[in-house]
């Protein structure tokens, strides 16, 4: 099959980009989307041009490196699929494909389709952890966890941090990403001591990175390669309200707030 690609090309962080047109010839339907780009890139290099830069690593949908807007849809048309697991058989022969980087103020473009997602790491650093110093743990079976809680935690913990939720959200919100981590740790007994502090700090960090707010469009859930539910956002909001109440109480009692 043959395709016409329209790809965002931008040489560096401080330059303006444009959409460029490329022809992808003799594409096999068994190729992954990234393999199709590999072939286009081989052709570009042979022609002495810079290949299209894009992030990718594991190519099995778990590392979260890859991600691009394909025909206006984050990670392209297949549901529950990262770009690397998208296959060309989902496209029609002769189709035009528009490829753009994730767009968000918090994800500045570095080059072509490569963006800086460091904001997501900073949200985790703000509180997306359980402070358990190495060596201090008790026997693992001393903390029984109800199977349902454990399953809920795992559902949320499946997040691969690709940023598709932000890219797909009309508001550019990182709510699903942040809520997934708050829900993962908040569902477990081990996560309770830091629950308030975690919600407070992660939400404020999310806001300070310049992400938008959540209108519950539902686009994030649809774009998520791990199909994480917007139910997590309800949980985040509960925890955030709870953390505000707790902070008032602490203050009233003369704590450090």
């Amino acid at each position: 099959m043959n395709l016409t690609l329209h790809v965002w090309r931008q040489t560096g962080p401080d330059t303006n980009g444009t959409m460029e047109r490329y022809e992808a010839r003799d594409v096999s339907p068994d190729m992954s989307f990234l393999e199709m780009l590999d072939v286009v890139n081989e052709g570009l290099v042979e022609a002495g041009q810079m290949p299209i830069a894009f992030d990718h690593d594991c190519r099995e949908g778990i590392c979260g490196s890859c991600g691009m807007m394909i025909n206006g849809v984050a990670h392209g048309p297949s549901k529950g699929t990262a770009t690397c697991q998208l296959h060309m058989r989902t496209f029609e022969d002769g189709a035009s494909v528009y490829i753009e980087p994730w767009r968000s103020r918090a994800f500045p473009v570095i080059k072509d389709l490569v963006v800086n997602r460091g904001a997501l790491d900073r949200i985790i650093a703000a509180g997306g952890f359980i402070s358990a110093q190495t060596g201090g743990a008790q026997d693992a079976n001393n903390i029984p966890v109800a199977k349902q809680d454990s399953d809920d935690a795992m559902d949320a913990a499946a997040c691969i941090g690709c940023g598709a939720c932000v890219a797909a959200c009309p508001n550019g919100s990182a709510s699903l990403f942040t809520a997934a981590k708050i829900s993962h740790l908040g569902a477990l007994p081990q996560g309770q001591p830091e629950r308030n502090r975690r919600a407070q700090r992660m939400v404020l960090q999310m806001d300070s990175e310049g992400f938008g707010h959540c209108t519950l469009y539902g686009e994030c859930q649809e774009a998520c390669p791990k199909e994480i539910s917007i139910d997590t956002i309800a949980r985040m909001n509960r925890d955030f309200v709870g953390s505000t109440v707790a902070a008032r109480e602490e203050k009233a009692l003369g704590g450090t707030g």
Binding site: M69, Y98, E100, R105, A168, N171, G210, G212, H213, Y217
Partner: peptide
């Protein structure tokens, strides 16, 4: 909040196709 979300995406997509958001949500 509208100001905020406009600022959150200074450069918009050239192509964009909403998947599940309702007309209601997009016309708020």
């Amino acid at each position: 909040l509208t100001q905020r979300s406009a600022a959150a995406r200074p450069i918009d997509y050239q192509h964009r196709s909403p998947q599940v958001s309702t007309l209601a949500s997009r016309t708020m």
